[in-house]
Simulated scan of single mutants.
Amino acid sequence: MASRAPVRRAHLGMLAWALLVGLSFPIVGRLGELPPLSLTALRFAIACLGLWALVHRSPERRPARCAWPWLVAMGACLAGFFGAMFWAAHHATALSMSTLYVSVPLLAYGMGLAVGVERLAWRLPAILALGALGALGLAGAEAWQRGGQWRFGAGEAVFFLGCLCSALYPVLSRRGLVAGHLPASAAVRTFWSLALGGVLVGALGIVVEPVARLATMSGRDALLIVYLGLGSSALTFWLMQRATAVLGPASITAYGYLVPFVSMLWLFVETPSRLDWVWLPGSALVVLAIGLLLAGGEEGADDGHAGAAEGGERRG
């Protein structure tokens, strides 16, 4: 079994991941009207520049031939999720999208079972269901305050396909790592999956967006994009890849339940008048679910594999 220290570091890293992702949404809202797919490709490019400082010193900076199909598939998952999200944003409500995103950890658990990187047990699915109820409670609180309603149409269907891509990304990462096909260095895996995903998202943006609008970017927009590229893309995907060495895909994606909770706290800082008891049930369930994950931990990798992954990180 994996030693407890890497498991604790992975869980703490995913807490930091949830904080960074949750705070990125208010920051994205401050950007001007820029083409979103092209903006995502630019963020990924900035993230890769930041990661290169770690990657160029790694002996695995040029992955083996067997790694490329996995890295391309991981990049395609990123492109699929962000492409679906931006398209659906114009055809579905925020409530519908946030409700559907609750399915990602459970989807990851099912996919992980299918490919042998999750164990069949009752505890983890129960925690995931608890977190999902909490996230639905937060979405319901948002709907109650805004007077919105849930529906399922073409936008929701496309976004659900994006959710499948989001769930598949950690499953592919974990399976490729356990099978020895992917580099042990989390920085290298993050760099190449972001680079390939950025190429695919950028190509899609060139086809469907007015890319020239990027030229209207202000200096403030540029600074925010640099922050998002380094903090919300490079660091968050690196934390996810580092956790992949010792945690299963479902446990990793379960931290997504904290994202609306963090965004909710930021909302209260900016608009204290939105503070209401209606947010309490969902918040309590999300915090309880994450607390149970932290308390129980997870033996996600055997000693040899975990040691190899840790060693790869020290080299990378």
Rank of each mutant, 00 (worst) to 15 (best):
H181R: 13
A73Y: 07
W150Y: 13
Q149S: 14
G197Q: 04
V55K: 02
S193C: 13
M85Q: 12
L235G: 08
T271G: 14
V226L: 15
L37C: 09
F191W: 14
L37P: 01
D302I: 06
G202M: 04
G248Y: 02
F81P: 00
V246I: 11
S38Y: 01
G153H: 09
A47R: 02
F191H: 06
L196I: 12
F81T: 00
T271F: 13
F25R: 00
G307L: 06
L78W: 05
M97L: 13
M217N: 11
G316P: 00
W70N: 01
M1C: 14
G80V: 08
P69G: 11
A89T: 08
L292G: 05
A143S: 11
L194A: 10
G256S: 10
R62P: 07
L239V: 12
V115K: 07
I206G: 15
M240S: 15
L31P: 01
I27Y: 07
R119C: 09
W279K: 02
L34N: 02
V278K: 05
A186E: 03
L49R: 03
A94K: 10
A2P: 02
G162Y: 06
T99I: 13
W70I: 05
G229A: 09
A309F: 02
A243D: 07
L161F: 07
R62Q: 13
F86G: 04
W68R: 07
V117L: 07
A18T: 05
A121H: 14
L196E: 01
L275A: 14
A47C: 08
A139R: 01
G256L: 04
A187H: 05
S173H: 04
L19R: 08
L95Q: 12
T93H: 10
A250P: 01
L37A: 11
G131E: 00
M74V: 04
Q149L: 08
P281N: 07
L42D: 00
M85H: 08
V55Q: 03
D302V: 11
V171E: 00
V7C: 04
L294Q: 15
V72A: 11
R220G: 15
F152H: 13
P260S: 09
R30T: 15
M111N: 03
